[in-house]
Amino acid sequence: MKTALNLQDADAFYECLLDAHQDLSREQSELLNARLVLILANQIGDNAVLKTCVAAALPPPAD
């Protein structure tokens, strides 16, 4: 899993993502996120890397 910033233009991607969610209902926004995750996972294509990414995205355990 890459931990250093790897996006060429992170701000532009974030803006694109926000624009995609504009005017969507909460349900539509959640479906967009789910589809995007699956599309990006397909681009990565490595189950070990994907599992590491999922683990890294989990919230930390409560104290």
Rank of each mutant, 00 (worst) to 15 (best):
V49Q: 10
N6F: 08
C53L: 15
A62D: 11
Q22R: 14
A4I: 02
P61E: 15
T3Y: 13
A57E: 03
P61Q: 15
Q8L: 07
I39G: 06
L40H: 01
K2L: 01
A12D: 07
A34D: 14
A10M: 00
C53H: 02
P60K: 15
Q28L: 01
L5N: 11
E30I: 03
L17D: 07
P59R: 07
L7Q: 05
A12P: 03
A34M: 06
L31T: 05
L32C: 03
Y14L: 14
S29M: 05
S29V: 00
D46T: 04
Y14Q: 10
P60N: 13
V54L: 15
A10D: 08
K2S: 09
G45F: 04
M1N: 12
A56E: 14
A4E: 14
K2D: 09
N33K: 12
P59T: 03
P61T: 10
A62T: 08
L32F: 15
T52L: 06
T52V: 00
Y14K: 09
T52C: 04
L32K: 13
D9F: 02
I39L: 11
G45N: 11
E15F: 02
V37K: 02
L36I: 08
E30A: 15
D46W: 00
H21F: 06
Y14V: 12
L40D: 00
T3A: 05
P61G: 12
V49L: 08
K2H: 05
C53V: 08
A56L: 06
A34V: 08
N33W: 05
Q28M: 04
L7H: 07
E15G: 05
Q28R: 11
V54H: 12
L50F: 07
A55R: 07
E27M: 04
H21P: 00
P59D: 11
